[in-house]
Amino acid sequence: MKAFSSMHPFVLMIYFLSVLITAMFINNPIIQFSALFGGIAFCGMLTTAKQKLSDIAFYIPLLILISITNPLFSHNGETPLFFMNGNAVTLEAIVYGVFIAVMVIGVMLWCKCYSLIMTSDKFLYLFGRVLPKPAIVMSTALRYIPMLKRQSAKVKKAQKAMGFYTSESYFDRLRFSLRVYSVLIGWSMENAVETAKAMNARGFKLKNHTSYSNYKFKTVDFLLLALNIALIIFVFWGVGSGAVAFSYYPQITHIDTSAFSLAVYSAYLILVFIPFFIEIQERIKWNCYRSKISALHTQRMKKEQ
């Protein structure tokens, strides 16, 4: 589970940007379906069985909803199938609906993977390189959030034990929450002053800050980055030259099957399956190690006997 996420944050960021931008803005069913399948494969590696089930329960209805509602909004297309309330429901509109649904869900899945992999400290590292001040504001905010969570539980209890939480009615709950929130605001303001002093005491006002991180750029990071850039340039070249151009309206065009187009599709397929391959490879490696270790173990046991 850790293989891909242990890559250097910069490499990860470039990777996610490449996939998300292409998945969001290229109008081509093969690209969209590749992105969707890559997203499913990667997400599958990152989530537990229970999460997978709830994802399926969420995305499948969404897929159906988006696809069937599209003809209501869009009456373009040359192939009417039937008429509803005087408007044509076209084949193109239905196909386009499926296509948008695939695109939306693919992008959402990739965003989910991004959220799971690009944790706040990785993001802050990148952010802090260019914009140290906003980065320290973010870091402090992230430090305050769990602290405020704890404090809000304490305040809730203290106020409840003074009888300020009288009934279960909606309005009372709201009033009580506002009360807790207001206490929280006062508390954090005072705390903020103390934190600011602690920062100054440790030389925050000095000029020429540096920014430290635990990350190191490894050979494997370089390799992945190079592969990523090579693939994405190739894909962009393909898109720019029109080799994968596709349109739904007024008529669904054919998918170009020239050698160059196929190469572009394969390049994209490789790109979106990189994390999946890395995770799989890592698992196989681990299983190998484990069986080797246990084999060694049994050998030794036999010898001792």
Binding site: L131, Y181, S188, M199
Partner: peptide, 30 residues
């Protein structure tokens, strides 16, 4: 960028951070 370049008192920075944290936690309290 202008925030990065601007002169900002440390307490102001922390208060902005605290406001961010408070708004984020507000999504939880309510």
């Amino acid at each position: 960028i202008s925030f990065e370049k601007g002169e900002n008192n440390t307490t102001r920075l922390v208060i902005i951070a605290v406001m961010v944290a408070l708004s984020a936690i507000g999504r939880l309290v309510f």
